[in-house]
Structures are given as structure tokens and as C-alpha cells.
Amino acid sequence: MNPLRRLYYLLEYAAATSLLGILAAAPLRLTLAVGEVIARIAFLLMFKRRGYAIDNLLRSGLTDSPAEARRIAFASFRTFVAMVAEANAARRRITDRNWREHVTLKISPEAEKILADPKQGVLVASAHFGNWEVVGRAASMLKPLTAIYRPFNNPYLDRAAHAGRTGDRLRLISKFDANPMRFVQTLARGEVLGIMIDQYAGPDGVPVQFFGRQAWTTKTVALLHLTTRCPLLLVFALRTGPLQYELHVLGPLQHERTGDREKDVFSITQNLTREIEKIVRAHPEQYMWGHRRWKQPKHEVPPNTKQA
């Protein structure tokens, strides 16, 4: 590694772990107050992310008012910072004994039965909504969970984040892990496999409609459901107050296999994305708008079309 890059990574690691360590030990109200300041600074300085968020909101049709789009975008930044701060605090404060004091479970009897079966592998799709770190932590209290994640570029920070986010019942697998059977192995062990499905997936994905626009979305969940027949749930955590959440478990989603792989993959992925859109429409402030969800693969971009 380039020595300058290594120095930068070490400084970034030291700053992040020091800040998060102090905030984890501090009273929650102080942590959230600091988070509020950080959100304001981030909204001011991260003009690129802010621009994506406002542009995404205007194009989504949720509002045609730039001022309202700016308001929701700022609320989205606040949600994100609160998510990081509370996820950090939750590692010490939310345990297997008290988690139900923090999380209200909204789940169908059918989904509850599936999660209670120790031999049944379960696929869980989720999105960057509310507090997705708490989704993993709370869902792992119901059944051991492995989540697929994208490692940080900074290897020191990645090791620290990995150690802080995992536990006895919660594991992480890098999306770059070379073993092609790793997801199926998790399901075969009777665990939950959690996958975020609302990020740009590139040309390997499937182009579904999200807020009326083409959004390239991972096929992994649909293909796993089709090949393993494991039940498929959509789970998200709505933040209702400081360290308070409603964990919504939707499904199991049903899909009859047709024999046409591409058609089945599209149908499942579109259904999941439609459900996510409903959730986001109901609570737009809790969605992470500042990413390029509607980015198009190079070969798909019509000339003179601005990407968002």
C-alpha cells in the first residue's frame, strides 16, 4: 500500500474509532445532539450527495417543490447520521435480553413460524431505510443471521467495523468473497441470509421500475429464492424515536416458478422493489436518498441524458 494512503487510512481509522468510542459511552441524548450537528455539517459540505438526494426526490415525483425536496433530503441525512450513532450505541444497549424494549415486532404468524424453525433457511431482503443496522441486530435475535456487506476501502476501518457489527448470532460476508456457494451454505445451515436490494447493481442486475424510473437491482435474492425455495421476507426497521423501532417483517412473498429464468427474476425483484417503494412513499424522510440509485450502465444511457 502507498505510504501516504496508509497514513490517511490510519488517521481516518483513529478519528472514526475515537469519535464512535466516545459517543458509545456518552448519554444517548448527547450522542444524538452531536449527530444533529454532524448531519447539518454533512448536508452543507457533502454537496454532491446533497445534490443526488434533492435530484432523486424531484425525479421521484414525491414533490415538485425544490424547497420540499431539500427539506426531505436534509431529514434523510439526519436519519442516516442517527442510524450510525444509534447503531453504535445499540451494540452496548440492545442485547438479547432487552431488545424487545427497543423493537416492536410487526410480523405475520406465518413469518413468525418460519423464523422459529431452526432448520429452515430464510432469505431476507431489506433496503437503506430507517435503521438497517438494527434490522440485522434485531432479526439475529430471532434467528442466526448472515448479512452480505460491502467492505470499506479503508482496511483498518473495515476490520474495526466488522468486529463491532458481528456477534454470536450475526455474521457478515463480504460481497467480494470468492466462494460462489457461500450464500447457499448459509441457507443450508438453517440461518437467515440478509441482502440489501436497493443499490445500483450495474449491468449484472435487472432493470426494474422504482418510482417510475428504471433502477438496476441485484438478481441475487430472486435467484436464491428460485433455486433454494427458501422463504423470502422483506424486512425493514422504521425509527419511531431514540433507539426505538418498529421491525416490519413482510411476507413470505410467494412466486410460482415459470421455467423462464429471466422472467421469474424480474417478477420477484420488481415485487420486492414495489414493496420498498410503498414503504419509502409512506416515510420518505427515512430513506437514504443521497445515492445514485437510478444510475444507468454505460451502454444503457441514451445520449445527452444526465445520470442521477
Binding site: 460462489p180 456457494m181 457461500r182 450464500f183 449484472d204 438478481k219 441475487t220 435467484l223 436464491l224 428460485l226 433455486t227 421455467g259 429464468r261 421469474d264
Partner: peptide, 14 residues
């Protein structure tokens, strides 16, 4: 990779 193995298995089953 983790996607193409699933594509293949779907096709084998079909």
C-alpha cells in the same frame, strides 16, 4: 460467481 452458479442451477432444474 455467486450469481452465475444460481443461473446454472435454475437452468439445470428446468
Amino acid at each position: 460467481d455467486s450469481i452465475s452458479i444460481l443461473d446454472f442451477m435454475y437452468d439445470v432444474e428446468s
